[in-house]
């Protein structure tokens, strides 16, 4: 039990919160055919973090998150600019912007040899979920001990705030989100401000991606923005049940992925463990594949006469 509290409780909680929040927002990204924006924002966090390190010389989380946030906003502006000036479709503009900015981040990293500090591309991609150890979590009593609780890894608090913010956003803006995603012109005509809602959604995606990025890396974030929502869409034709399905898939991926990564190889007789983030992302992809093969709403029905 103490092992679980010390080594597993925090990573598991963090993984569940992140998976659920990203999957929740992912529902609207998928419906708006904007799935790539999550991909874009989690990639450009890298150049943002490197730039903030170069400017401030610290690896403090606040500076890193600010850098990532600024680069996310910059990316959204660039995407919009390229889309308008180049008259290309949205996903092409996104693809161009985030790959070049990510590449720029890699170059900046090498050139300045920040690489020698604990900031490498690998960390950016897989994160370090397993390193979120709660050293004071020695017994169940620790859960009620303020001293021990204050020793919880700071990522947990940040991720919890992010989760609450994302949930509050979706609850407050649910009608506007649905309306803006389904029929933006009508939404504008009834004062639902679809442009503002779209921007807020992207902003929430940035907040979720950045908070998650630091704790679990980019891979899981990208997977969670797309896989659970896309799989859920194939399971039902109702938005509310789609959202419920996406949350279920997110939780299953997080819990099962964490357990399989930690213990799976042991069950097979190998004395190693795998990256939990990688396993969670893989599982969510596997669930999407299952939904593609067996989901009841894979085919759009033909209109009646």
């Amino acid at each position: 039990m103490s092992d679980f509290l010390m080594f597993s409780l925090v990573p598991l909680t963090v993984a569940i919160i992140i998976c659920m929040s990203c999957a929740l927002l992912g529902n609207f990204l998928v419906l708006r055919r904007q799935s790539l924006i999550g991909d874009a924002i989690s990639h450009v966090a890298l150049p943002g973090i490197v730039a903030s390190f170069l400017l401030t010389g610290t690896l403090a989380s606040s500076a890193m998150m600010l850098g990532a946030g600024v680069s996310a906003l910059f990316t959204v502006a660039m995407i919009e600019l390229i889309r308008r000036l180049g008259r290309v479709e949205n996903s092409a503009a996104m693809g161009v912007v985030f790959t070049s900015l990510f590449a720029l981040g890699v170059l900046m990293l090498e050139w300045n040899e920040v690489g020698t500090v604990h900031l490498d591309v690998e960390h950016a991609l897989y994160g370090n979920l397993e390193s979120l150890i709660w050293f004071e979590g020695t017994s169940v009593a620790s859960l009620f001990d303020t001293q021990a609780l204050s020793d919880l890894p700071p990522q947990l608090g940040r991720v919890a705030w992010m989760g609450a913010l994302v949930a509050a956003f979706v609850v407050v803006f649910r009608r506007g989100l649905v309306l803006a995603s389904f029929d933006a012109d009508f939404a504008a005509s009834v004062g639902a401000r679809p442009t503002l809602v779209g921007l807020l959604l992207v902003l929430m995606v940035a907040v979720a991606a950045i908070a998650a990025f630091e704790a679990v890396g980019a891979i899981i974030v990208i997977a969670m923005f797309i896989c659970p929502a896309a799989a859920a869409r194939l399971m039902t034709n109702h938005l509310a049940s789609q959202i419920a399905f996406s949350q279920l898939i997110a939780v299953v991926s997080a819990v099962l992925g964490y357990v399989l990564a930690g213990y799976g190889p042991g069950w097979l007789g190998f004395s190693v463990s795998l990256s939990a983030a990688g396993m969670i992302a893989t599982l969510s992809g596997g669930l999407l594949l299952l939904a593609c093969l067996f989901g009841p709403y894979r085919h759009r029905r033909e209109p009646l006469g």
Binding site: L31, V171, V172, F173, R174, R175, G176, V178, L179, S181, F182, D183, F186, A187, V190, G191, A192, R233, T236, N237, H238, L239, Q242, R300
Partner: peptide, 21 residues
């Protein structure tokens, strides 16, 4: 029109201005 919504969901959207969050 592939949006996951039923007919009544879409018609209810007309009440957007009457419903606070």
């Amino acid at each position: 029109w592939d949006f996951p919504a039923t007919v009544i969901d879409v018609v209810t959207m007309g009440l957007f201005r009457d419903l606070r969050w």
